[in-house]
Simulated assay, not measured.
Amino acid sequence: MKIASWNVNSLNVRMPHLAQWLAAAQPDVVALQETKLEDTRFPDGDIAALGYRSVFCGQKTYNGVALLSRVPAEDCVIAIPGFEDEQKRVIAATIDGVRVVNLYVVNGKAVGDVKYEYKLRWLAAVRDWLAAQIAQYPELVVLGDFNIAPDDRDVHDPAAWHEKILCSTPERDALRAITDLGLHDSFRLHSEEGGQFSWWDYRMAGFRRNLGLRIDLVLVSDALRARCVASGIDREPRTWERPSDHAPVWVRLAR
Rank of each mutant, 00 (worst) to 15 (best):
D75C: 01
I80L: 14
N210G: 11
R121A: 15
A79D: 15
Y52M: 05
E139Y: 08
G144Q: 01
F146V: 03
V251C: 06
F197N: 01
D75T: 12
R225E: 10
I215K: 06
N63L: 13
L103G: 02
D39A: 11
L123N: 01
V218F: 06
V105W: 02
I215R: 08
V29I: 15
I78F: 11
V218H: 00
C57S: 14
E241C: 03
W21H: 14
L18D: 03
L103W: 10
D154V: 04
E163G: 07
N102M: 00
E241G: 07
L140T: 13
V218M: 06
A125K: 00
H17A: 15
P150M: 02
Q133S: 11
V90Q: 09
V100F: 04
E241K: 12
H17L: 15
R89I: 07
Y202V: 05
T40W: 01
I134N: 11
A174P: 07
R188N: 11
A177P: 02
D245P: 02
D173C: 12
F42L: 04
V65Y: 04
L67S: 10
L37E: 05
V8Y: 06
P27D: 02
R203F: 04
G58C: 08
N9G: 11
A230P: 04
D173P: 05
A223V: 03
E241M: 11
W161P: 03
P72R: 10
D216P: 14
A66G: 08
P150T: 12
S10P: 12
V105I: 14
T239Q: 09
Y118N: 07
V13A: 15
I3A: 11
R209F: 07
V126A: 14
W161V: 06
P43M: 12
I47S: 01
R227G: 05
A125F: 00
A23S: 13
E84T: 13
Y116R: 05
W200V: 04
C76G: 00
C228P: 02
A149K: 11
T169M: 00
W200L: 07
D75P: 05
M204P: 00
V30F: 05
V111I: 14
L123K: 01
R203Q: 05
C167R: 02
Q196P: 02
V114N: 09
L211E: 06
D201T: 11
L166W: 00
D185Y: 03
A247Q: 03
V98I: 14
V105A: 15
P248N: 12
R121K: 14
F187K: 07
S54D: 00
R70V: 08
A223P: 03
A177G: 14
K109V: 12
A205W: 03
L11S: 10
Y202W: 07
K2E: 11
S168Y: 01
R252S: 15
R53K: 10
L32T: 13
T94D: 07
I91C: 04
N9D: 10
A160T: 00
E84A: 15
E38N: 13
G112W: 08
V98S: 07
E139A: 13
V65Q: 08
A131G: 14
I148N: 02
W199A: 13
A19V: 13
S54I: 03
Q196K: 12
G51D: 00
E86M: 14
P16N: 04
S54V: 12
A132R: 15
I134P: 04
V251T: 07
L213T: 09
R176S: 08
D151C: 11
V111Y: 02
S10Q: 02
D145A: 07
C228H: 08
A247F: 01
L166V: 14
